[in-house]
Amino acid sequence: MTVDFRRVIRPVAIGTIALLTEYALLGTQQFANALTLGAIYALIALGYTMVYGIVELINFAHGDIFMVGSFLAMWIMTTVLGLSGPVTNLLNLVGLLSIVMFATMVGMGFIGMFIERFAYRPLRHAPRLAPLITAIGVSFILQNIISSLFGPSPVNVPQIVPLDKFAFMGGKIGYLNVFMVVLAVVLMIALQLFVGRTRLGRAMRSTAQDREAAELMGVDINQTIAITFFIAAALAGAGGVIQGLYFGSIKFDLGFFVGLKAFTAAVLGGIGNTTGAAIGGFIIAFVEVYATVLGYTQWSEVAVFTVLILVLVFRPSGLLGQQLGERA
């Protein structure tokens, strides 16, 4: 059995090189920071890339879906579960985290499906500009609903995972950081398995490749697209949960910049390619952290967007994507 260069060796090689370079430049402590941030970007970038892959729509509202996810998780933790601070009993913590994570992901999944059904599906055959403008509208709506429900100032999230640290290779790493990265990786692997090994995953891949042909083969296009939006929003919801746990504070306009950076990550990795999105997320986080290390924090956004423009100009297919063609 030969190993597919494109699907296995290249992603692994690029990922390894990227991680090693990051580590060499940043050192243990900052590397841990970058990995943690990258985990959040990667989870959001996956959603962009999946939706784009299947309906060729830049879901402009995806960053705001992530934001709504962080608020949903906060609401579940405070109002439903009545939590306010660290949970020290490990068993309780695992149980509570699972509940919060599961409820947020499912809740966000349904919100994602709902948005697709009412805002995007009617426009599936309209010119490209139409759904993109709709997505901008949805983004405004989500932000304003949250700001009128929870207020415009930052809202605290109970940090139920204790912020304890352990010494590791010359640095001090928080248990939460490890949890976040592991969670992101597990979700990504689960996604890969789902897309690659299940019947629904196959339907998604075929729909992305050729919608008409897939329909002729008996794939329910509407259902497949709805499920894609469900998964994308659920992953963003997971990102929202860990965002709140890690930073302890969320705000209604959080989604705009984080979403833009995650989108850059998706483009960098090669839009439509889930492995690429994950790698892109870690690279964008690295660019940001490295700008900080060099003392140019105020330029880090400029750096990220410059990366975006350069990638699009010189390699529109991204690091791992397929050639999209030069057609305008």
Binding site: T292, G295, Q298, E301
Partner: peptide, 19 residues
């Protein structure tokens, strides 16, 4: 020792303080 500027859109201050 160091002077940094972080715009209000910053969500992650950890790398700044780590440096």
């Amino acid at each position: 020792v160091k002077r940094d500027s972080a715009p209000k859109s910053t969500t992650d201050y950890t790398p700044l303080f780590t440096a």
